[in-house]
Nucleic acid binder design. Structure first.
Length: 622
DNA sequence: GGATCTAGCGCC
DNA sequence: AAACGGCGCTAAATCC
């Protein structure tokens, strides 16, 4: 077995005895798979670095992969950097053997004009950036490319799956999580080299497929947004832990009170064979257990089949205990999901929360966010407000900008509904207009209650919601009580008033849904596909939600170029909202840039509807 | 006992 | 005739 030399006195370039494998990429699903072995050069000596990188300086395309000691860019380190160009051994640089300040030849390669190919480049970009080796130029990310290409069909976009599906290459990923801190085995190096090598082949395959599917532009948009997303994660958000603790206390108190009320109202466990073995347990009930709650409510002669919110809400007025139950469940969920959970994510090194954003996390092209999900932090659930606990660092302010009613504007654009277009062109409020149209009142007579009803109608009906759901939705989300008859009537009047929206629904039903077509695109061409027949509502939704995602991505990609000169940092995105942390002195300039960039990004997609952005500056989010 | 599924909560 | 879409997290329930 070949042991990697750690000493620079040893001849440091090892050539694999195996030959560089040449093969033709498969254009159809491969039946025969192989595990090629690629030639590599291992660089463990500063003096060899320049020579080894010489061929890469002129390359048009470089595939880059890294092996690290872990997954956290703030605490883990890169051990190996693998660089692959066509018809040349993969260059593997052992950073354990080369000092950081000797890496300028590498930095030159990482910042040249070549296209840099990555798998999940966000991670490598972050790791390299932490070493002062931030890659620049244009990027190609095979994971993002695969997600764009197969959105809606596949969920697995790891390198192993891609290599197998597009190239028929079997990658042994058992070594991925092996120990990259000590001496490296030959098989570890072969694994590392192969990973970089297949990126070049994957890119060729993916380009051709993206082009055939007219998805190159969408993929390029993802690649352009990638560094912004990577930097956004590194920036993270600052949570005021003391303030947060107070919010938690408030919630906990309310939760305890709610539980007492619930028990006093008569919610108690039902005797069951199992529980009776433990008499002390029969004294309490867990209101978060749907099975316990179901039998407890049955014991009180409340006729329900499920304990779901939609089932319970209609009964809440008749049975006060139901309202108390809903109240408790809400508080308990807020407490465990947010109050308790978020502080666990404060990073020990930075003191900030660094969530993980997936830029193709949703099939529509929207972002998803996890560990923790900061896209669902409650808005108004406590006196103080949870979002207010996310604060700007000293000397900074939080600049928040969101697209105003962007989904409705996109519906107006796509449907061409003249009344909607007219209203937005005149700068009118669409919810008030809808209120006027469904109640028959004049715009001046519309009350705020009418407007609230109209809001639920607007958001509910654009994707074809039925009357029954509209009724439930209006009560649950907007605290609006409608009879089923009223819901039916409002639905009818909505589509009479916005006949263009009706025609849009009919058109999609006729030309896509009825023809069993299993794909649809956004204005910018982003495609979503379905394995089985999509629902009409899904077909209506994707072009709207996806277009909104497209414009957000254009905006953050542009901001990544423009923000450094203001010192502002991108710290979050929430679908139609962008959050920056901005030095006091550049607030005006940054706000101007942010608003302009967002409006221009929106105008790339909306030709007939004005784009409006609402911007606020505050010491906190919220 | 751990992995996975479901219900129910939050957001846009 | 009827149909809103897109996510992630926690606790309870269930599977293996």
């Amino acid at each position: 077995m070949i042991v990697v030399p750690n000493s620079s006195s040893i001849f440091s370039v090892i050539k694999s005895s195996k030959t560089l494998l040449r093969f033709t990429p498969m254009t159809t699903s491969p039946h025969n798979t192989s595990t090629p072995v690629v030639e590599y050069e291992l660089i463990t000596n500063t003096s060899k670095l320049s020579d080894a990188l010489l061929p890469l300086q002129k390359a048009r395309v470089i595939a880059i992969d890294t092996e690290t000691t872990g997954l956290d860019p703030r605490s883990d380190r890169i051990r190996l950097i693998q660089l692959a160009i066509p018809k040349h051994p993969v260059v593997i640089i052992d950073l354990a053997a080369i000092s950081i300040d000797e890496l300028s030849p590498l930095k030159q390669v990482l910042t040249n004009n070549a296209i840099k190919v990555f798998q999940n480049g966000k991670f490598d970009w972050q790791m390299l950036g932490m070493l002062g080796l931030r890659p620049t130029g244009s990027f190609f990310d095979v994971m993002l490319a695969s997600q764009v290409l197969r959105s809606g069909l596949k969920k697995e976009h790891d390198l192993k799956s891609l290599a197998l599906e597009f190239l028929g290459i079997e990658l042994d990923k058992s070594l991925q999580s092996s120990n990259f801190t000590g001496k490296l085995s030959n098989s570890q190096l072969e694994y590392a080299a192969l990973d970089a090598f297949v990126l070049l082949k994957l890119r060729m395959q993916l380009i051709s497929r993206l082009r055939s599917a007219s998805l190159l532009e969408t993929a390029e948009l993802e690649f352009a947004a990638m560094p912004a997303v990577a930097q956004m994660e590194l920036n993270g958000m600052l949570l005021d832990a003391e303030q947060w603790h107070l919010v938690g206390e408030e919630l906990n108190q309310k939760k305890q009170t709610a539980l007492v009320e619930l028990v006093e109202a008569g919610l108690k466990p039902t005797p069951s064979a199992q529980l009776s073995l433990f008499p002390e347990f029969t004294e309490t009930i867990n209101p978060r257990s749907s099975t316990q709650v179901l039998s407890a409510l049955h014991a009180l002669n409340i006729p329900i089949k499920l304990t779901s919110k939609s089932e319970l809400i209609p009964l809440a007025r008749q049975y006060p205990i139901i309202q108390l139950l809903l109240n408790y469940r809400k508080l308990a969920s807020l407490y465990s999901n947010f109050a308790e959970a978020l502080p666990k994510h404060i990073h020990p090194i930075t003191g900030r929360i660094h969530p993980s954003y997936r830029q193709c996390g949703a099939r529509s092209g929207r972002f998803s966010c996890k560990q923790p999900n900061l896209q669902n932090v409650p808005r108004n659930c406590t006196a103080k407000g949870m979002r207010n606990c996310f604060i700007a660092a000293p000397g900074y302010q939080i600049v928040k900008a969101d697209y105003s009613q962007i989904e409705l504007r996109i519906v107006a654009e796509i449907s061409g509904d003249t009344r909607m277009l007219d209203a937005y062109t005149k700068g009118e409020d669409l919810h008030t207009l809808t209120a006027s149209l469904i109640t028959g009142k004049s715009l001046e007579e519309v009350t705020s209650e009418d407007r609230r009803i109209a809001k639920s109608v607007n958001f509910g009906l654009i994707y074809g919601m039925g009357a029954a759901k509209l009724q439930a939705y209006a009560e649950e989300k907007y605290d609006v009580l409608l009879t089923l008859e009223e819901a039916k009537e409002f639905r009818k009047r909505f589509f009479q008033a916005y006949s263009g929206v009706k025609r849009w629904h009919d058109r999609i039903r006729r030309t896509v849904y009825a023809k069993d077509i299993k794909q649809i695109r956004t204005i910018g061409g982003r495609r979503r596909r379905w394995a089985k027949k999509p629902r009409l509502s899904e077909l209506l939704n994707h072009p709207v939600q996806g277009t909104s995602a497209d414009m957000l991505k254009v905006a953050i990609a542009r901001l990544f170029e423009l923000l450094p000169k203001t010192g502002a940092k991108l710290i979050g995105v929430v679908h139609d909202e962008i959050l920056l942390e901005c030095p006091q002195i550049s607030l005006k300039r940054t706000s101007r840039i942010l608003k302009r960039v967002m409006v221009e990004a929106g105008e790339l997609y909306l030709q007939q509807v004005p784009v409006e952005v609402e911007l606020t500056i505050s010491s906190s989010w919220g």
